[in-house]
Amino acid sequence: MLFIILLVVVAIFAPVLASLIGHGPNELFNRTMLDDFGLPLGPNSEFWFGADASGRDVLVRMIYGTRVSLAVGLLATLFAVGLGVALGLVAGYLGGIVDTVLSRIAEIILSLPILLFAIGIVTACGASKEGCARGAIKPGLMLVVLISAFFTWPWMFRIVRGVVLQLREREFVDAARAIGAGPTSIMFREILPNLISPIIVYASLMIPQAVLFEAYLSFLGLGVPDTTPSWGRMIADGSQIYDVAWWLMLFPGIILLLTVLAFNLLGDGLRDALDPKSDR
């Protein structure tokens, strides 16, 4: 939890931190931080996490990368959860043809090879600045967010639908119907509060997935533009010369791992805190 607050603070105050260190994210220090063969130098007292192949400060770039990772992780999860929960509630509670259609759509999306499709979409839409679909989809951060949300909402949908199918047979739903409550009221007042635990838990697992997804795409050179630092792109760049510059992959890798872990732990904690049966 503390770690996540720290990440958020770092993301918000990235320019302040960078100015405290005194290095810009794209500032080249090729005179001081590259050796005679053009290879980067490792961590020292001025560059705590060393420099990359172009002589840029790894720490400052990681600080800026936090912004990208958190933005993608939170936005993509927000969209995916919103869509998945709303459709899952409707499909699970109403059943019938609505359920059949939505479930088939979700299954089709789940059966697609995500990375392959994502690469395809990004390549198609990211080729020019105008984007594709007559400029409706533009390359950049938002594209990564939308692709990630599009491919992950079916997970949330399936979980929500499954739990709703169980819950709607419970007597308290009959009780609500017996007092005359309508379907909307039952879905949102009776069933949704009982879904909070699974939603929180799976959302907390989806945030790191989205963070990782952005890293994959950036690793493949398909995510955010080259000038925007992101953890995935840094790992990708570092992988080319990891045998001489271990710090390039290690530090972004560690921070990615810690972020994923922190969100998972947060999910566990929230689930316990939100359950009225656990008085802690």
Binding site: R170, F172, D174, A176, I179, R189, K277
Partner: peptide
């Protein structure tokens, strides 16, 4: 209902449960 464990929504307080018919109507 038969089962007082299943017929009360575990996420609602007793006040909310008893007030639900009043709210709906």
């Amino acid at each position: 209902f038969q089962d007082p464990y299943a017929s009360l929504n575990p996420r609602q307080s007793v006040g909310q449960i008893i007030a639900a018919p009043l709210r709906v109507h």
